[in-house]
Design a protein around this nucleic acid. Sequence first.
DNA 1: GGCCAGGTGTAAA
DNA 2: TTTACACATGGC
Length: 211
Amino acid sequence: MNALHIYKILFDTYGEQGWWPADSPFEVVVGAILTQNTNWQNVEKAIANLKAADALDAQAMLDMDETRLRELIRPSGFYKQKAERLRLFCTFYLGQGREQGIKKLPDPRSTLLALKGIGPETADSILLYALEIPVFVVDAYTRRIFIRLGLLDSAASYAETQTCFHTQLDRNVLLYKEYHALIVQHAKQHCRVKPLCASCPLTSICPAALT
DNA sequence: GGCCAGGTGTAAA
DNA sequence: TTTACACATGGC
Protein backbone atom coordinates (compact mmCIF):
# COMPACT_ATOMS: atom_id res chain seq x y z
CA MET A 1 0.00 0.00 0.00
CA ASN A 2 1.48 3.32 -1.02
CA ALA A 3 0.60 6.80 -2.19
CA LEU A 4 0.30 5.73 -5.81
CA HIS A 5 -2.24 3.07 -4.94
CA ILE A 6 -4.36 5.61 -3.08
CA TYR A 7 -4.11 7.93 -6.06
CA LYS A 8 -5.46 5.27 -8.38
CA ILE A 9 -8.42 4.60 -6.13
CA LEU A 10 -9.25 8.29 -5.88
CA PHE A 11 -8.84 8.82 -9.62
CA ASP A 12 -11.06 5.84 -10.41
CA THR A 13 -13.68 7.19 -8.02
CA TYR A 14 -13.71 10.87 -8.86
CA GLY A 15 -12.07 11.15 -12.27
CA GLU A 16 -9.90 13.95 -13.58
CA GLN A 17 -10.26 17.18 -11.61
CA GLY A 18 -8.45 19.65 -13.85
CA TRP A 19 -7.24 21.86 -11.02
CA TRP A 20 -6.56 24.71 -10.18
CA PRO A 21 -9.91 26.42 -10.96
CA ALA A 22 -8.57 29.76 -12.22
CA ASP A 23 -8.23 31.67 -15.48
CA SER A 24 -4.61 32.69 -14.99
CA PRO A 25 -1.52 31.96 -12.87
CA PHE A 26 -2.01 35.22 -11.02
CA GLU A 27 -5.56 34.22 -10.15
CA VAL A 28 -4.14 30.99 -8.72
CA VAL A 29 -1.98 32.99 -6.35
CA VAL A 30 -4.87 35.19 -5.28
CA GLY A 31 -6.99 32.11 -4.64
CA ALA A 32 -4.18 30.41 -2.73
CA ILE A 33 -3.88 33.34 -0.35
CA LEU A 34 -7.61 33.90 0.03
CA THR A 35 -8.36 30.25 0.74
CA GLN A 36 -6.11 30.08 3.79
CA ASN A 37 -8.27 28.40 6.42
CA THR A 38 -11.33 29.44 4.44
CA ASN A 39 -14.11 27.69 2.56
CA TRP A 40 -13.59 27.88 -1.20
CA GLN A 41 -17.15 29.11 -1.67
CA ASN A 42 -16.25 32.30 0.17
CA VAL A 43 -13.11 32.67 -1.91
CA GLU A 44 -15.19 32.49 -5.08
CA LYS A 45 -17.28 35.42 -3.91
CA ALA A 46 -14.17 37.47 -3.24
CA ILE A 47 -12.63 36.62 -6.62
CA ALA A 48 -15.92 37.47 -8.33
CA ASN A 49 -15.82 40.85 -6.60
CA LEU A 50 -12.27 41.43 -7.80
CA LYS A 51 -13.17 40.51 -11.36
CA ALA A 52 -16.26 42.71 -11.34
CA ALA A 53 -14.08 45.60 -10.16
CA ASP A 54 -11.50 44.82 -12.83
CA ALA A 55 -9.07 44.37 -9.96
CA LEU A 56 -7.75 40.85 -10.46
CA ASP A 57 -4.42 42.32 -11.39
CA ALA A 58 -1.25 43.02 -9.42
CA GLN A 59 -0.89 46.65 -10.41
CA ALA A 60 -4.59 47.32 -9.87
CA MET A 61 -4.43 45.90 -6.34
CA LEU A 62 -1.48 48.13 -5.53
CA ASP A 63 -3.09 51.21 -7.06
CA MET A 64 -6.34 51.05 -5.10
CA ASP A 65 -6.80 51.97 -1.46
CA GLU A 66 -6.16 49.08 0.86
CA THR A 67 -9.57 49.70 2.43
CA ARG A 68 -11.11 49.22 -1.01
CA LEU A 69 -9.26 45.93 -1.47
CA ARG A 70 -10.46 44.83 1.95
CA GLU A 71 -14.05 45.45 0.95
CA LEU A 72 -13.71 43.46 -2.26
CA ILE A 73 -12.24 40.40 -0.53
CA ARG A 74 -14.32 40.64 2.64
CA PRO A 75 -16.35 37.47 1.93
CA SER A 76 -13.20 35.37 2.16
CA GLY A 77 -12.69 36.25 5.81
CA PHE A 78 -9.53 37.47 7.56
CA TYR A 79 -9.83 40.26 5.06
CA LYS A 80 -7.53 42.78 6.71
CA GLN A 81 -4.54 40.50 6.86
CA LYS A 82 -5.31 38.97 3.49
CA ALA A 83 -5.45 42.39 1.84
CA GLU A 84 -1.99 43.10 3.21
CA ARG A 85 -0.70 39.70 2.15
CA LEU A 86 -2.03 40.12 -1.36
CA ARG A 87 -0.37 43.49 -1.73
CA LEU A 88 2.93 42.23 -0.35
CA PHE A 89 2.84 39.48 -2.92
CA CYS A 90 1.88 41.89 -5.71
CA THR A 91 4.91 44.06 -4.97
CA PHE A 92 7.15 41.01 -5.02
CA TYR A 93 5.46 39.65 -8.16
CA LEU A 94 5.90 42.81 -10.21
CA GLY A 95 9.38 43.41 -8.82
CA GLN A 96 10.55 39.99 -9.95
CA GLY A 97 8.97 40.22 -13.39
CA ARG A 98 5.85 38.13 -12.85
CA GLU A 99 5.79 34.34 -13.22
CA GLN A 100 8.80 34.09 -15.48
CA GLY A 101 10.95 36.15 -13.18
CA ILE A 102 9.96 34.14 -10.12
CA LYS A 103 10.67 30.85 -11.90
CA LYS A 104 14.18 31.99 -12.69
CA LEU A 105 15.09 32.64 -9.06
CA PRO A 106 17.73 30.30 -7.58
CA ASP A 107 15.27 29.03 -4.98
CA PRO A 108 11.71 30.17 -5.71
CA ARG A 109 10.26 28.24 -2.77
CA SER A 110 12.46 29.83 -0.13
CA THR A 111 11.89 33.23 -1.66
CA LEU A 112 8.12 32.77 -1.49
CA LEU A 113 8.31 31.49 2.09
CA ALA A 114 10.17 34.62 3.09
CA LEU A 115 7.09 36.68 2.23
CA LYS A 116 4.81 37.48 5.14
CA GLY A 117 1.62 35.52 4.70
CA ILE A 118 3.06 32.79 2.48
CA GLY A 119 3.51 29.57 4.44
CA PRO A 120 4.43 26.12 3.13
CA GLU A 121 1.05 25.16 1.71
CA THR A 122 0.46 28.48 -0.01
CA ALA A 123 4.00 28.50 -1.39
CA ASP A 124 3.66 24.98 -2.75
CA SER A 125 0.24 25.72 -4.25
CA ILE A 126 1.79 28.66 -6.08
CA LEU A 127 4.79 26.62 -7.22
CA LEU A 128 2.67 23.74 -8.49
CA TYR A 129 -0.43 25.39 -9.90
CA ALA A 130 0.87 28.78 -11.00
CA LEU A 131 4.52 28.05 -11.85
CA GLU A 132 4.19 24.40 -12.87
CA ILE A 133 7.02 23.27 -10.61
CA PRO A 134 6.56 19.68 -9.35
CA VAL A 135 6.12 19.96 -5.58
CA PHE A 136 3.46 18.07 -3.66
CA VAL A 137 0.94 20.25 -1.83
CA VAL A 138 0.23 19.08 1.71
CA ASP A 139 -2.92 20.32 3.41
CA ALA A 140 -5.00 19.43 6.43
CA TYR A 141 -6.98 16.92 4.38
CA THR A 142 -3.85 15.15 3.17
CA ARG A 143 -2.65 14.69 6.71
CA ARG A 144 -6.01 13.58 8.05
CA ILE A 145 -6.61 11.01 5.35
CA PHE A 146 -3.16 9.45 5.41
CA ILE A 147 -2.96 9.37 9.18
CA ARG A 148 -6.30 7.55 9.25
CA LEU A 149 -5.06 5.10 6.68
CA GLY A 150 -2.09 4.37 8.89
CA LEU A 151 0.29 5.58 6.19
CA LEU A 152 1.51 8.62 8.07
CA ASP A 153 2.57 9.28 11.62
CA SER A 154 0.31 11.77 13.35
CA ALA A 155 3.34 13.78 14.43
CA ALA A 156 4.79 14.08 10.92
CA SER A 157 5.78 17.59 9.96
CA TYR A 158 4.86 19.31 6.70
CA ALA A 159 8.30 18.56 5.27
CA GLU A 160 8.19 14.92 6.32
CA THR A 161 4.75 14.45 4.83
CA GLN A 162 5.84 16.06 1.59
CA THR A 163 8.96 13.92 1.41
CA CYS A 164 6.80 10.85 1.82
CA PHE A 165 4.93 11.72 -1.37
CA HIS A 166 8.02 12.86 -3.24
CA THR A 167 9.74 9.54 -2.65
CA GLN A 168 6.71 7.43 -3.52
CA LEU A 169 5.67 9.29 -6.67
CA ASP A 170 7.35 10.44 -9.87
CA ARG A 171 8.16 14.14 -9.97
CA ASN A 172 5.32 14.96 -12.29
CA VAL A 173 3.42 18.25 -12.33
CA LEU A 174 0.20 16.83 -13.70
CA LEU A 175 0.21 13.94 -11.23
CA TYR A 176 0.77 16.26 -8.28
CA LYS A 177 -1.90 18.67 -9.48
CA GLU A 178 -4.48 15.94 -9.83
CA TYR A 179 -3.53 14.19 -6.60
CA HIS A 180 -4.00 17.23 -4.39
CA ALA A 181 -7.24 18.06 -6.18
CA LEU A 182 -8.51 14.52 -5.68
CA ILE A 183 -7.69 14.63 -1.98
CA VAL A 184 -9.69 17.82 -1.56
CA GLN A 185 -12.56 16.45 -3.64
CA HIS A 186 -12.57 13.28 -1.58
CA ALA A 187 -12.41 15.08 1.73
CA LYS A 188 -15.35 17.27 0.79
CA GLN A 189 -17.50 14.20 0.26
CA HIS A 190 -16.23 11.92 2.99
CA CYS A 191 -14.60 11.74 6.32
CA ARG A 192 -14.58 15.40 7.22
CA VAL A 193 -15.01 14.83 10.89
CA LYS A 194 -16.09 11.28 11.48
CA PRO A 195 -13.87 8.29 10.73
CA LEU A 196 -14.10 6.60 7.39
CA CYS A 197 -17.63 5.54 6.56
CA ALA A 198 -19.10 2.63 4.63
CA SER A 199 -19.48 4.53 1.37
CA CYS A 200 -15.90 5.77 1.42
CA PRO A 201 -13.85 4.28 -1.41
CA LEU A 202 -10.86 4.01 0.92
CA THR A 203 -12.72 2.01 3.56
CA SER A 204 -11.48 -1.34 2.32
CA ILE A 205 -7.86 -0.41 2.92
CA CYS A 206 -8.31 1.46 6.16
CA PRO A 207 -7.37 -0.55 9.25
CA ALA A 208 -9.73 1.52 11.39
CA ALA A 209 -12.55 1.55 8.87
CA LEU A 210 -14.81 -0.85 10.67
CA THR A 211 -14.08 0.09 14.25
C1' DG B 1 -26.56 28.23 17.40
C1' DG B 2 -22.25 25.76 16.91
C1' DC B 3 -18.90 23.95 13.92
C1' DC B 4 -16.01 24.15 10.16
C1' DA B 5 -13.35 25.91 6.15
C1' DG B 6 -7.89 23.90 0.40
C1' DG B 7 -3.24 28.42 7.04
C1' DT B 8 -0.14 31.76 8.91
C1' DG B 9 2.21 34.82 12.24
C1' DT B 10 3.14 35.80 16.83
C1' DA B 11 3.97 35.22 21.62
C1' DA B 12 4.39 32.60 25.59
C1' DA B 13 5.68 28.24 27.90
C1' DT C 1 11.16 23.73 19.92
C1' DT C 2 6.41 23.09 20.79
C1' DT C 3 1.73 24.99 21.89
C1' DA C 4 -1.89 28.41 22.15
C1' DC C 5 -4.29 32.11 20.10
C1' DA C 6 -5.97 35.71 16.81
C1' DC C 7 -7.54 36.48 12.45
C1' DA C 8 -13.47 36.74 10.13
C1' DT C 9 -16.89 35.43 6.76
C1' DG C 10 -20.69 32.37 5.23
C1' DG C 11 -22.87 27.69 4.63
C1' DC C 12 -24.89 23.83 6.78
